[in-house]
Design a protein around this nucleic acid. Structure first.
Lengths: 125, 125
DNA sequence: CTACCTGCAAACTTTTTGCAGCCCA
DNA sequence: TGGGCTGCAAAAAGTTTGCAGGTAG
């Protein structure tokens, strides 16, 4: 199966540590501080592998393509359309919606995501 | 403001007509049947313009980046993780969720999207 | 006329992949 | 020692943009 590698460990550490929702390139530049000769290809390969084993989630709702996070509990996101920041929305979880949609569509649901777009308090002023 | 152009009209027609959620390239190839020498750049420019005036929506939830649709009423999407098809979920709309999130976050909400991932009935068999 | 729009092609951004060598178990 | 993993670089995929000429109003 999988082996350990320093690169993979540091990539995961960076993602677990940050509160932001970074792009692959941001992760690359961050890991580079610790492993200066790491390659971008390795970052992409590991982000993909970590996703496949559920350690990392790629978020994509409302135009936030290619952003990752190491926070594995279910939560939603909101993006400020002015300054671009992405924040977690932890207060609201739709516990029953997957069952409803399963009944309505016949799909076996494995996951759902919710994204909001708007203007953040700071940009509203 | 904006002028009319045959290219723009055909692009919009294609999007209104289809029940799928096509990529820019699919739209390009479809429009090409009617306007053989249209360029991909024109398709991208018009998809962007049509988005900005609300005629077209770019959907992005659960890995469906770069897919467009001409169906402008609010609805959600579900993607089959096996065959890749995207279907509309029309039966369920969360009318009150934007207000809830506005109160919880202080954002002024302008939009929300919901995406589901799972396995479609055909692929389950 | 005069903006806006188009086709074309080049440029850019983001992500993937082939390869030779390295390293963990 | 073998198979996964890495760095590097080239390639692929997706999208944007500059330009010169066309066209709607």
């Amino acid at each position: 199966m999988h082996r350990h590698s320093r690169q993979r460990k540091v990539i995961l550490d960076v993602l677990k540590r940050t509160k932001t929702h970074p792009s692959a390139d941001w992760v690359y530049r961050e890991v580079k501080k610790e492993i200066p000769n790491i390659s971008l290809g390795t970052v992409y390969r590991n982000l993909k592998l970590l996703q496949s084993i559920g350690e990392v989630t790629e978020i994509s709702c409302e135009g936030n393509e290619g952003r990752f996070e190491g926070n594995s509990h279910l939560h939603y996101h909101i993006t400020c359309q002015k300054c671009g920041q992405i924040k977690d929305v932890d207060d609201i979880i739709l516990h029953d919606i997957e069952g409803k949609v399963a009944r309505a569509t016949g799909f076996k649901i494995t996951n759902h995501c919710v994204g909001f777009a708007g203007i953040c308090p700071a940009c509203l002023e």
